[in-house]
Design a binder for these strands. Structure first.
Length: 572
RNA sequence: GGGCCUGUAGCUCAAUUGGUCAGAGCAGAGCGCUCAUAACGCUUUGGUUGGGGGUUCGAGUCCCUCCGGGCCUACCA
């Protein structure tokens, strides 16, 4: 049994995430976690809300709430949606937790003691009306290059020219519109990650098996221009982890907080500590996952994230841990994802374009979304959601191939033998052939899951379902029943066992349907089938079951058209 | 501007890293079956692998170039 630590990139707190966010980290990591648990491994699966930063403060202000209250509410909303999608986190924490405060401050202190932090005086734009410093992106004005009036302080979206906020003509706050801006001096802590460049470079080089998407981004940052640059890790904000604290090895940082990207990944550790607290366990319980001197040396740590998160996970977070000179567990494998597009464009929160997590659960069961998203997860390139494709996949894969198989077998059995596994007859060549085929496919399915090739695994799983229909067609129990009822009994017994097997194998992808099937089969036997032949004898003659209701209702053309209309967005 | 990714059948994607007629699923066509959610099975039609050039015994894969799509570019997260 292995020990596997799995973290999903933290969803930001300022709103409900869309399906693209879901499929880019949480969903595939959940499937992986479920699979690894099913294989008997010890899994710690962690996620949390990322709660600090300017957007959180603005969203709270917009909602007319204190930021702490806003974050607490949004955390609960996101936690509820996570439950709705059956995301099986061992703990869903908060980056604003006391645990994260302590850990973040601890690591910063260690970095400071190790000479890896310096104080830098910077000039930044301050908005008197907003009472805050403005990140470059939150300053708008006219582009000096092309005259576009909505240019941002970091870049003009019209002519793509990189800008400095002071370049803008008639600059204004993007938050309030105020033009009462001034440049002020402010001091910030910088993480001297340039000093760790060689160590990071060597470390990245050792990760031969990482996806190109992951390593190429890291290498670019390490080698572009002057190489890895030092990075500010503090901000002038109210909401966040205070930089000045007892034992802090620097002064004059009152009123400042750590930069959200400094504390967010630390929350992976923080959330594990929160998990221990929530379960009444002491520190050793979480430390054995994170401290290589306290048991984490045999942990395999896998991170899941969208491609936009890669630099922070390959460089700044490892730099934080390495720079502490403490034996923290570093990531072993990073699985990064491309983006999911929506019907020929991008998901857009502002335009209401695309399906968001709450809406998705309102209109269809989570298994539908899980199946489509996982079987189309953007592993190799951006992928595309269309309603037509969604409808076709759900109706064909879930309703016709899997759902109908369960239906035809259980209903046939009920009408000929009753709701009980029939006795008589014996498995023969046809059954052995199916066992052979499924064994081969199962090995492929497992290999793909081990390699975190979710799409390929889903295709293999589907083929395993389809093998049941092929078998049934070949064995034709409806014909056998007329001449040789014992033979029909053996076929149906075999098919009923296939149904149970399918429920077990499908659990990482469609946990609700899996539970429904096992419930209908009235069995608790969900051990992973290391031996397919043996698994075909788990439901024994005389075992009772019930015919389940339709597992997957089909999506009608009308329903599809309606949803297509509803989620098209305002401006497109 | 710079860097990276990407373009394969009508659609969504593969192709063991340069090696047999480029494969699946869906959609289309034909046949079969009648247990089942008008479901299932079998067979089958679709491709000058974005265009052009090059390297090689051999290119979807490597190089050059053009065209299209996307991401990143360090103060959004």
């Amino acid at each position: 049994m292995a020990r596997i630590l799995i973290t999903s990139a933290l969803p930001y707190i300022n709103g409900i995430k869309h399906l693209g966010n879901l499929v880019g980290s949480q969903l595939p990591s959940d499937t992986y976690a479920r699979y690894m648990r099913a294989r008997g491994h010890e899994v710690m699966y962690i996620c949390a809300t990322d709660e600090h930063g300017t957007p959180a403060e603005i969203a709270a202000a917009k909602a007319g709430k204190p930021v702490a209250e806003y974050c607490a509410e949004m955390h609960e909303v996101q936690a509820e949606l996570a439950r709705g999608f059956r995301l099986s986190f061992d703990f869903f924490g908060r980056s604003s937790s006391q645990r994260n405060h302590q850990l973040t401050q601890h690591l910063a202190r260690r970095l400071g003691e190790n000479g890896l932090i310096e104080i830098v005086t910077e000039k930044q734009v301050y908005s008197k009306a907003d009472g805050r410093f403005l990140p470059d992106r939150y300053i708008e004005g006219t582009c000096p290059n092309c005259g576009y009036e909505g240019a941002r302080g970091d870049q003009c979206e019209e002519c793509t020219k990189q800008l400095d906020p002071t370049d803008l003509i008639n600059p204004r706050s993007a938050i309030s519109g105020s033009t009462d801006l001034e440049v002020r001096e402010t001091k910030h802590l910088f993480l001297r990650q340039s000093r760790l460049r060689d160590r990071l470079d060597e470390w990245i080089d050792s990760k031969r098996d990482w996806p190109v998407l992951t390593t190429s981004i890291a290498k670019k940052w390490l080698h572009d221009g002057d190489g890895l640059q030092d990075r500010g890790i503090t901000r002038d904000l109210d909401w966040g982890i205070p930089v000045q604290f007892d034992g802090a090895p620097w002064e004059g940082m009152e009123g400042k907080v750590f930069y959200v990207w400094f504390d967010a990944p630390i929350e992976y550790i923080g959330a594990t500590a929160e998990w221990a607290d929530a379960n009444g366990l002491d520190d050793s319980a979480w430390e054995r996952w994170w401290r290589t001197d306290k048991g984490a040396d045999n942990v395999r740590y896998v991170q899941f994230m969208g491609k936009d998160n890669v630099p922070f996970h390959t460089l700044s977070f490892p730099a934080t841990l390495m720079g502490s000179n403490e034996p923290w567990k570093l990531v072993d494998y990073i699985k990064s994802f491309n983006y999911l597009n929506y019907d020929g464009g991008q998901f857009s929160t502002s335009k209401g374009r695309g399906v968001f997590m709450d809406q998705a659960l309102e209109i269809l069961p989570s298994d539908y979304w899980r199946w489509w998203l996982l079987s189309h997860v953007p592993e190799n390139s951006d992928s595309e959601f269309t309603w037509e494709n969604f409808q076709a996949s759900i109706n064909k894969d879930l309703a016709d191939v899997l759902g109908n198989f369960v239906s035809r077998v259980t209903k046939f059995c009920r009408s000929k033998f009753g709701e009980v596994v029939p006795e008589g007859g014996a498995y023969g060549a046809a059954e052995l052939a199916v066992i052979d085929e499924i064994s081969t496919r199962l090995a492929a399915y497992q290999a793909h899951m081990e390699a975190i090739e979710i799409r390929k695994a889903s295709a293999e799983l589907r083929a395993i379902w389809a093998a049941g229909n092929e078998y049934l067609q070949e064995a034709a129990p409806w014909a056998a029943f007329k001449t040789d009822p014992e033979r029909a009994a053996a076929i149906i017994r075999f098919a009923l066992n296939l149904i149970r097997l399918y429920a077990v194998l499908s659990e990482p992808f469609i946990p609700d349907a899996s539970a429904t099937i096992l419930g209908a089969m009235k069995t608790e036997a969900r051990d992973w089938p290391d031996d397919v032949a043996a698994a075909m004898n788990i439901l024994t003659p005389g075992h009772e079951f019930t015919v389940p209701d339709v597992l997957f209702a089909k999506i009608t053309d009308d329903a599809r058209a309606e949803m297509e209309q509803r989620f098209a967005g305002k401006d497109s």
